[in-house]
Design a protein around this nucleic acid. Structure first.
Length: 585
DNA sequence: GCCGTTTTCGGCCCGACTGTTTTCAGTCG
């Protein structure tokens, strides 16, 4: 299989390998950028490989990279990549990944000490010979040893739903510091990325030192990595999760510029700063200033910024429409916007269409589920317990399903203020048939069809399987279409373009499952669904009441995919939504 | 290696912090 992720990984690796061979840094960066551009593409690039012009049309992909992608599509490898791997020991890539070790140092360790992997590095630390290398003092050596141990203990990036609560906990504590002003989290958590590498906290306040102290002395902090006047950095353990957190304290006058800078993405910042230069201005984390060729940064010379207090002001001064944080990524095309796209928000959601009760693997009774949905102000809640094949999840036999439908109807009859629909999350079997016969499906108000087993199918097989499910006349929603679990399993890689086209044809909504372990569809798929004209359902797949709170992660994913409220059926009025569902009965 | 309502060649964002240095290189975001 050769997904975009595979190709992106090769480009990413080429960037690192080039760095280690001492290649021009702009060339290195161009490879890293190409990797991001490839990753952000919804369409499988191997399908585009016949058309070099189409590949080159992708921002960040030039003639050379397009040729390499075509070469990969044809031969399954890239010659330059193979040659680089022959030159540089692949274990060096692990060494380069150790925090604090950059290309210069790794190259030096390799050339002077023969280090070709982590084990070699550990060995020369242990026998002390690492000290022969220039600029290797006691502190540096200790930091490297520590970083290795951290890398070994850390599971890497944290899922969004694990990172955000930690970020919020830190913010709460800093807000409690005397004289604290605004405190908020930025970085990839603010952009709503599915995983977060480290937490970026931005604060202002009367007593800057007090904020840094409070931050560095949190009980979960196991090591202070840096502590300067404006920035401190710690490594902390929260529960079983290890994560790095950075705090930046800036004056309120610089808040917008700092927030923008700290939110990123890095690529976005670079593009924006380039744009500023073209307009005769310079942008840094303190503000947007007139460019005057002076070497000392403008904020140190008392230069009055053109804009700095709010992000909005900076965008305006640059002549760019405000870019929502979720869209500040490579390949979203923000440079061409005339105005900010209208994106869906949590408050737009008025119905949950994918929920489980104690009848299968949920923790709530029908009544408790309905109560929780009412509390969120929803007009509709669909009860969609598992179908019979999901035995582990307590899937319902046809007989039990019939009883369950009755039970749901009874609750609906006696409930005021919300419509309770009888539905099912029906397994899509390996061959694409559904777990209940059509005559059973017909009795249900809502059918969410989802893949749960046979998740290692080849893309072609998976595509046909899901297409068949979409074409079933009784299906309303395609639930978590790929079945992936972030960082745990890739699951299916269907041809999203074809799924979208079929979903449009059969008026099936594609689900964004809001659980932070899933976020499935993922952001780039959602973007494809939007450009293809499909409807989206954003659901929490609730098993417990608190999981309704996961909607924020589903919404973040939707926003990253450019979803406007009207494209999501959960935002529709009861009348409109129910009409859509009934049209298939 | 990419890119261009100034450019198809000559640029390519900007600052904080650390550690090992006596003025700065390396790394990070």
């Amino acid at each position: 299989m050769s997904s975009n992720a595979d190709i992106a990984a090769i480009f990413e690796q080429m960037a690192a390998l080039l760095e280690l061979t001492g290649a021009d840094k702009f060339r290195v960066n161009a490879h890293a950028r190409a990797a991001r551009a490839i990753e952000a593409c919804a369409e499988p690039l191997v399908d585009l490989a016949d058309d070099l012009k189409a590949l080159e049309a992708i921002e960040g992909i030039g003639a050379k990279s397009a040729k390499k992608i075509a070469e990969y599509a044809e031969t399954g490898e890239i010659k330059e990549h193979r040659e680089l791997l022959a030159k540089v020991p692949s274990g060096l890539l692990d060494v380069l990944a150790v925090p604090g070790l950059g290309p210069k140092t790794v190259k030096l360790l390799w050339e002077e000490k023969g280090v070709e992997g982590i084990d070699d590095l550990k060995r020369i630390i242990e026998d002390g010979s690492i000290a022969d290398v220039p600029r290797m003092g006691a502190k540096t050596i200790a930091n490297i040893a520590d970083a290795i141990s951290f890398a070994e203990r850390s599971a890497g990036r944290l899922q969004l739903g694990l990172a955000v609560p930690i970020a919020e906990m830190i913010c709460e504590r800093l807000r409690a510091v005397k004289g604290a002003g605004s405190v908020e989290y930025a970085g990839s958590a603010r952009r709503g990325r599915e995983t977060v590498g480290d937490l970026d906290i931005l604060a202002s306040g009367k007593d800057e030192a007090a904020l840094h102290d409070a931050f560095s002395s949190m009980p979960e902090v196991e090591k202070v990595l840096a502590s300067g006047e404006s920035k401190s950095s710690v490594r902390m353990q929260v529960g079983k999760h290890l994560i790095q957190a950075d705090l930046r304290v800036v004056g309120a006058a610089h808040h917008g510029a700092a927030l923008m800078y700290f939110t990123g993405s890095k690529e976005f910042n670079v593009r924006l700063r380039e744009r500023a230069l073209k307009k005769g201005m310079t942008l840094n984390e303190y503000g947007l200033y007139p460019e005057d060729q002076e070497k000392t940064p403008p904020q140190h010379r008392g230069v009055k910024p053109i804009a700095s207090k709010t992000e909005e002001a900076i965008f305006e001064a640059l002549g760019v429409a405000f870019v929502p944080p979720e869209l500040r990524e490579e390949g979203t095309g923000w440079e061409r916007w005339k105005q900010t796209p209208e994106l869906i928000e949590v408050k737009d959601i008025r119905a949950e269409l994918h929920a489980h009760t104690t009848a299968s693997d949920g923790a709530m009774s029908i009544e408790e589920l309905v109560e929780a949905a009412k509390e969120r102000g929803f007009h509709t809640i669909a009860v969609t317990d598992h179908s019979r094949s999901s035995a582990i999840a307590g899937g319902l036999s046809v007989e039990r399903l019939m009883e369950h439908i009755e039970a749901v109807r009874e609750v609906d009859a006696k409930t005021k203020g919300i419509t309770v629909l009888a539905g099912s999350e029906v397994d899509i079997l390996a061959d694409g048939t559904l777990d209940y016969e059509d005559k059973v499906l017909k009795k249900l108000d809502v059918v969410v069809a989802s893949p749960h087993a046979s998740l290692r199918q080849e893309p072609v097989v998976a595509t046909e399987r899901l297409l068949k499910a979409i074409a079933n006349p009784f299906v309303h929603i395609l639930g978590h279409p790929t079945g992936r679990l972030i960082g745990e399993r890739e699951a299916l890689s269907p041809d999203i373009g074809r799924l979208v086209a079929a979903a449009v044809e059969h008026r099936v909504a594609l689900e964004i499952n809001s659980h932070w372990r899933r976020l499935d569809l993922r952001d780039v798929h959602v973007r494809a669904a939007m450009s293809g004209g499909a409807l989206i359902a954003i659901d929490c797949d609730v098993h417990r009441a608190e999981q309704f709170g996961n909607i924020r992660y589903g919404i973040a994913t939707a926003r990253r995919g450019g979803v406007a409220p009207e494209r999501c059926i959960n935002t529709w009025t009861a009348k409109k939504l129910h009409a859509l569902l009934k049209a298939k009965r």
